[in-house]
Design a protein around this nucleic acid. Structure first.
Length: 345
DNA sequence: AAGATTCGCAACCGCTACTAA
DNA sequence: GTTAGTAGCGGTTGCGAATCT
């Protein structure tokens, strides 16, 4: 299609890496660190472009990479984070140490997305597809109106959560730099032998010394198809509209949102019929779509025709709503629990 | 057994953000 | 403020393996 090659130089090798090439790259980085990726191939004696070397290292050769089957806990985390962050694989990957963004992206595209679709859930919005069929009635028009009133609230809360994830990630990076200044300060991209370099100081500067605001890149989620226009609001509507009657069940760990008054107000303004409130997302996810999905991977009976799961045929509305609420509760729980609190870390 | 189709993953491409000169 | 160089990200492709017919 006329795409220009990533490297101008002709004669550079492309395609699968050979064990010999891997060995060369590994040996060079272990001894010298990667330094400038552009200069690395020549120094390491590789007929590859720097970009190719970098990808090979970050996605395959890095010693801190865990390969193989994803655990249920990892699947859960990916689904939840995808609901929150969309296709921002690198952001998701920061919460799954030892997994690369590429691997997570591939796993999502080949496994999780299909599983969601099979269960009748839109993998983009994480919203039951059956909702679309319900639109048009008076009742649902009022529902939709209520949705709109909560979209801004939810979006604000979501963005705040995102910003918080980034802040904490940065803080952890900086703490790593302080506590492990010479060897493992760059767990995600640099070998243990990597000396402190320019990037390290960039990390320090970015981490902030008081400059921990969310970077611009974290606030562009609407570009990824999960912004206000596409976020699943129906899940919240039923309970949100009834919150004054039923009372609000606050999320554990909500104090984590202190300092973000708007976000906290938003979260508190939403009500959830929580049947699985917990502070450990990895162990106590008992209901909701997540578990249906996960069960689906091991229980063929749940995958047949989606009757048990998609809420559009068979299950009661109440059951559907409970599932929805738990689904989003779990996502908020994930946000509320800092990554360092997570059992995964 | 053989060809066709589907699946899964590694790698590539183009774009964007960031930094330094 | 501009520009060039670099790294990182997300979407997409290509190909071998697995499965189906």
């Amino acid at each position: 299609m006329g795409r220009s090659p990533c490297c101008d130089k002709v004669g550079l090798k492309k395609g699968p890496w050979t064990p010999e090439e891997d060995q060369k790259l590994l040996a060079y980085i272990e001894e010298h660190g990667h330094g400038s990726w552009r200069a690395l191939p020549a120094k390491a004696g590789l007929q590859r472009c720097g970009k190719s070397c970098r990808l090979r290292w970050t996605n395959y050769l890095r010693p801190d990479i865990k390969r193989g089957k994803f655990s249920l806990q990892e699947e859960q985390t990916i689904i939840q984070l995808h609901a929150l962050l969309g296709n921002r694989w690198s952001a998701i990957a920061t919460h799954l140490p030892k997994r690369t963004d590429n691997e997570i992206k591939n796993y999502w595209n080949t496994h999780l997305k299909k599983r969601l679709a099979k269960m009748g859930i839109d993998p983009i919005t994480h919203k039951p597809k059956s909702d679309a069929l319900l639109s048009g009635t008076d009742a649902n028009q009022s529902k939709n109106a209520a949705n709109l009133s909560h979209m801004a609230q939810w979006e604000s809360a979501r963005l705040e959560a995102e910003a918080r994830l980034v802040r904490e990630s940065k803080l952890r990076s900086f703490q790593n730099l302080l506590t492990r200044p010479t060897t493992t300060a760059f767990p995600s991209s640099v070998s243990a032998a990597q000396p402190v370099n320019k990037t390290a100081w960039n990390s320090i500067n970015n981490a902030g010394f008081g400059d921990l605001e969310s970077p611009k890149s974290t606030l562009t989620s609407s570009e990824n198809g999960i912004g206000p226009s596409t976020m699943p609001m129906n899940e919240f509507t039923c309970t949100a509209s009834a919150s004054s009657e039923t009372g609000i069940i606050k999320q554990e760990g909500e104090q984590e949102w202190k300092g973000t008054n708007l976000a906290m107000d938003n979260i508190n303004s939403l009500s959830f019929t929580s049947t699985s409130i917990h502070d450990d997302i990895g162990n106590t996810m008992e209901d909701g779509f997540i578990n249906l999905l996960l069960n689906d991977s091991t229980d063929p009976s749940l995958s047949d025709s989606g009757k048990e799961s998609d809420g559009s045929s068979g299950g009661s509305d109440d059951h559907c709503e409970d599932n929805n609420n738990n689904y989003w509760n779990s996502i908020l729980d994930l946000v509320n629990s800092s990554p360092s609190d997570s059992p995964m870390f």
